[in-house]
Computed example of a mutant assay.
Amino acid sequence: MDGKKCSVWMFLPLVFTLFTSAGLWIVYFIAVEDDKILPLNSAERKPGVKHAPYISIAGDDPPASCVFSQVMNMAAFLALVVAVLRFIQLKPKVLNPWLNISGLVALCLASFGMTLLGNFQLTNDEEIHNVGTSLTFGFGTLTCWIQAALTLKVNIKNEGRRVGIPRVILSASITLCVVLYFILMAQSIHMYAARVQWGLVMCFLSYFGTFAVEFRHYRYEIVCSEYQENFLSFSESLSEASEYQTDQV
């Protein structure tokens, strides 16, 4: 990959993936160190002995809860930025805008769910926390399928199949994890449910990292200028993603 032909915006999805992954694992290790949860590699827990290593339980008590809140708020913000940039990127390339709009709305709702997860800990307000979980996992899964379909349909730089097929596989894995997670939860098989939950979240984050492939072809600009009668409006000045030309330095 030639760095001169890659936009710096490709690093945004990668930063989101790496930052959020690292932050969640820091929360996990803090909770394990404080004896709040069992390690993921523990055998099936006995009743009344610590907690299964669910992410929400790991981030339920300070100091882990402080880190968890910060990580989820930052992740929600970065996911929202990715959602808007992805929408702008695909806007001039899709004939029917509804799928693109649906992807934007779904990811925005998933981002809102992340803020609920981070700011309303499980023991403080379980109902709101569970709403956040449902929004994040539900609309997050929907987002993955929508973006996989858009990837194959738009086929940016003839990379649609190369990127779309892994996204379909990740979307299927995420869907399977969601179903399996709730089945295990319903049967109170908590250690396995917690492991599936961690796998689910890592699949989500890996999926977001794949947007770097398409973002590397685009740049985004906001034009700020003194107001004039015949000047473009702000909405018109917000340039849509423009593709890098092969001869661009």
Rank of each mutant, 00 (worst) to 15 (best):
D61L: 13
L99T: 00
M74Y: 12
I101Q: 13
K50V: 05
N100S: 12
P62C: 03
Q70K: 10
M114W: 04
A106Q: 04
L107M: 14
Q121K: 12
V84E: 00
L90A: 04
V82A: 09
F77Q: 03
I37G: 07
G118T: 00
K36S: 09
C66W: 08
C108H: 07
P97T: 09
Q70T: 07
F120L: 01
N100D: 10
C66Y: 09
V71L: 01
H51E: 13
S56Q: 11
T123V: 02
P62A: 12
R86F: 03
P53G: 09
F112R: 01
F120P: 02
A52L: 09
A106V: 02
G48N: 10
A31I: 11
P63V: 00
L109C: 02
G103F: 02
V49K: 12
V105T: 08
S65D: 14
L38C: 15
L78W: 00
A83F: 06
F77P: 02
Q121F: 05
L38Q: 14
K36D: 15
S65M: 11
P92D: 11
P62R: 10
K46Y: 14
V82G: 09
D34S: 13
G48C: 08
L99S: 00
S56L: 13
G103Y: 03
C108A: 11
F112E: 01
A52E: 07
L95N: 12
D35W: 11
F87D: 04
P97Y: 09
